[in-house]
Design a protein around this nucleic acid. Structure first.
Length: 455
RNA sequence: GUGGAUGUAGCUCAGUUGGUUAGAGUACUGGAUUGUGGUUCCAGGGGUCGCCGGUUCAAAUCCGGUCUUCCACCCCA
């Protein structure tokens, strides 16, 4: 039988030791910050029922769900031959589970399902993989990790402010230069209302979003050709040329949206968030960006997105407020807000900008060369003492050529190599070699531990 | 889902208008060096040329299909 070529599914990746060490550095960093702000961990299953997932991410999102084929005789629910010809409806008959698409919707499901055990406001973080049947490309994978922080059960804008602080703190620890972009769905709704096109909010937002790419004129053309009346498009122009300092923007918006109740509400929210933020010393720039739309259609208030300034990879973090996500599952009037850090893109950014600390690569600090059975016994005893002193150490498991043992230590970035042969055993000492400088000295066990403990 | 590129040794890549037994660097193994790695020198193993089919006396090379990876759009982390 011919050996099959080993492979993994499209858009998925293996993470080797170096990658894992680096990924864990990211996970540990965000986790530490999340904890510091009072968030608690949560995990939900890889699979959810499709009824939980469908309809929450818009039409596009539904298409990108990975569906899990029913077990057993999955065709038993298919009524007749004819149904087999219609793929879209067939798929609903033979699948009832799907891989989770994000962490927020399963979180909302969890909150509703366990509402009696939860004290609100509920602050949780969640670091897990999610799956999307997207076509992979740069910074886009079919399996990727999100690090979510959400607070649910409070309408306070303090939560938005806290999330911005968290974001700022995480990226400043990681050393990534970012711009935090903020917008508000209510402002966008107000803009649509001001144009007299309240029901076309999404269409208008998407068009505004393209302004950097295709320019103001094309945006206008696109709007008119999609059925927005020209006079309404005229009213949009001040929004399209929107620029200036934060306060100027807010004044401008105030004037523009004065007739829209919901719009004014959005502006007030933005102002309050900035008012709170003015008391903090943030490292990152926080900017109002009206072109920020965000596709997930459950957002209702503030929306946030973080862009890396030094690497072009799309957003590395995003989120917002959702007023009624739990309502779909039967728990009304519970507002939540959260953000999601895209671990994989953060990894890519840090790799490109060379931001990972160098000492991450190090594992074993001390390796004992194996000289044979008797020496092994002697070393094992020392090894235990060294390990108990909190120093990560190992012994080469086989008595093979020294050259091989030394290259093993070299490739593994081991800091020191201990050599114990007949002479050393007789003296009760250990020859310690510094792999970087090449220096060598004879030490007692006590001196050895002392030397390695200082550094 | 739409459009464009790509695939040769574990990895990075050469390979002429189709023409002997498909190469290099690196990694690996052994030796120079039986108690010293990262430098050097020598030798060695390792390839269904992504897969299937077609054209041809002859295909890594030309044609068709298919898959993979990458890039852009869409969308997003």
């Amino acid at each position: 039988m011919a050996a099959q070529k080993p492979s993994i599914p499209k858009g998925t990746r293996d993470f080797g030791p170096i990658e894992m060490v680096r990924r864990n550095y990211i996970f540990n960093t965000v986790q530490k910050v999340f904890k510091k702000y009072g968030y608690l961990p949560l995990e939900t299953p890889a699979m959810e029922n499709l009824s939980t997932l469908l309809g929450k991410y818009g039409e596009e999102g539904d298409k990108l769900l990975f569906r899990v084929l029913n077990s057993g005789n999955f065709l038993s629910k298919v009524p007749d031959e004819k149904s087999l010809q219609n793929a879209p409806s067939l798929v609903n008959l033979i699948t009832e589970k799907g891989l989770k698409y994000d962490l927020t919707v399963p979180f909302a499901r969890y909150v509703v399902q366990h509402r009696n055990d939860i004290t609100f406001p509920f602050k949780r973080y969640q670091i897990q993989p999610v799956w999307r049947a997207d076509r992979p490309q740069k910074g886009r994978y079919r399996e990727f990790f999100q690090c979510d922080v959400d607070v649910i059960g409070s309408k306070s804008l303090l939560s938005e402010v806290e999330l911005i602080q968290i974001t700022d703190e995480v990226f400043s620890i990681l050393g990534i230069n970012v711009k935090i972009k903020i917008n508000n769905r209510k402002v966008l709704a107000g803009v649509a209302e001001m144009m007299g096109q309240a029901d076309q909010m999404m269409k208008i937002t998407i068009a505004i979003d393209k302004i950097d790419k295709i320019g103001i004129e094309k945006v206008n053309e696109e709007l008119i050709s999609s059925g927005i009346p020209p006079d309404a498009v005229d009213k949009l122009q001040p929004v399209l040329t929107f620029s200036g300092l934060r306060n100027e923007k807010l004044v401008l918006l105030r004037g523009l949206l004065s007739d829209s109740e919901i719009g004014m509400q959005g502006v007030c929210e933005l102002e309050m968030v900035f008012d709170y933020l003015s008391g903090f010393d943030l490292k990152s720039e926080v900017e109002i960006d009206l072109s920020l739309a965000r596709g997930l259609n459950y957002y209702t208030g503030a929306i946030l997105e973080v862009e890396a300034l030094d690497v072009n990879i799309g957003s590395i973090c995003g989120g917002g407020r959702y007023d009624d996500l739990t309502g779909i599952f039967g728990l009304k009037d519970v507002s939540g807000v959260g953000i999601s850090f895209g671990a994989d893109r953060i990894y890519d950014v840090m790799l490109q900008s060379d931001l990972f600390p160098l000492d991450l690569a190090q594992t074993t600090r001390l390796m004992f060369v194996n000289f044979g059975k008797e020496e092994e016994r002697f070393c094992l005893d020392v090894l235990a003492k060294v390990r108990n002193a909190g120093i990560s150490a190992e012994i080469y498991p086989d008595h093979v050529k020294m050259k091989k043992q030394m290259s093993y230590a070299n490739n593994k970035n081991v800091e020191f190599v201990a050599m114990v042969g007949e002479n050393e055993m007789a003296e009760g000492k250990i020859s310690l070699k510094n792999m970087e400088s090449g220096e060598q000295e004879k030490l007692s066990v006590k001196e050895l531990i002392a030397k390695l403990s200082v550094e």
